[in-house]
Design a protein around this nucleic acid. Sequence first.
DNA 1: CGAAGTTGTGACTGTCCAATCACTCACAAG
DNA 2: CTTGTGAGTGATTGGACAGTCACAACTTCG
Lengths: 182, 182
Amino acid sequence: MAVRSTAEAQRALVVASATRVFARAGYHATPVTAVAADAGISPAYVFRLFDGKLGLFLAAVDHCYARVVEALTSGAEQASDRSPAGLLEAMGLAYAHLITDRDLLMLQVHAQSASDVPEVRDALRRGLASVVGTVDQLTGAGPDEVQRFMAWGQLCHLVVMADLDEVPGSWASTLTQGIRHF
Amino acid sequence: MAVRSTAEAQRALVVASATRVFARAGYHATPVTAVAADAGISPAYVFRLFDGKLGLFLAAVDHCYARVVEALTSGAEQASDRSPAGLLEAMGLAYAHLITDRDLLMLQVHAQSASDVPEVRDALRRGLASVVGTVDQLTGAGPDEVQRFMAWGQLCHLVVMADLDEVPGSWASTLTQGIRHF
DNA sequence: CGAAGTTGTGACTGTCCAATCACTCACAAG
DNA sequence: CTTGTGAGTGATTGGACAGTCACAACTTCG
């Protein structure tokens, strides 16, 4: 058991590396070698721990959404104002905190972009289902409020990907206004 | 001029092919060969018409945003209700019509995903600047309304990429509600 | 006609990368 | 000590792909 847990521990470590490395350039532009190097192991071993490059990416995406759901949940738990609007506010804040390092956010965008691969599209749908489900259940907000919450998140993704905080001009601040970043 | 216009005409044709082909799998996953095949010319010639694969992609992205701006503009021109809200509504409708074939939409998402390449990020910013600028100037709406308009567009992108119209379940309809598609 | 330029291609090159395989090493049970 | 197992790797293979270059065909103009 102690022996077996080592392999599982490595898998978790590699998923962390994969999240970090895939977040930079996305699925297709990232060689498995880069993930292996980041994790400090040989590429060959990565292929033994996961079912091909795709399996590795899927593991990272699934884990990513799991962490998002986790953050939203704990955000909602700690909300003082427990009205739907207050809970949404708390969840938004929790999400803003979560994506401080940008990796989780960028991975979501890359998953979206790679969704022509059926398995990736399915993982994307799974993730969205769990996020929307969480927001829906925990806030008790109406569908249109939940939708607006998700749209806000998508705008947030755009702002980060294009690094609009660094861009001068009123059009940029039109998009970034009210977007929290830490 | 007839001679020069031939080369320019080919370039336009190739940009159309590039838009179509890059839209499917994105920048990194699409070989130039595929674009050339779609355009019915040799890969070598594509490299002569454009400055590498990157130049080709940038041309497609720029052209994509130009078409978006064009659609928004003509949408605004034909609006009967000329209040800010009415103009935004008309623009939204025009955009919904424009992205019937999905290629322009998907290319935007792929550009977002490939924005770790500096030139792509710049093209993305240029495009966003022109779109936001157009909406801002033509509608006279406030920054927060313009922002909401853009967020709606981003949500629309997500819905199309994940093909949520095909997905059963309340979470999917929460995201798709009110999103027009033709 | 021939010179000059332009469109367009086939053949080729160097590189990178996913995936596999044979192998070593540490260790544990009998 | 031997037998067996899981961790981990180096070497390699096969294929794909970005980019180049010399050359062919055609047009234009002197």
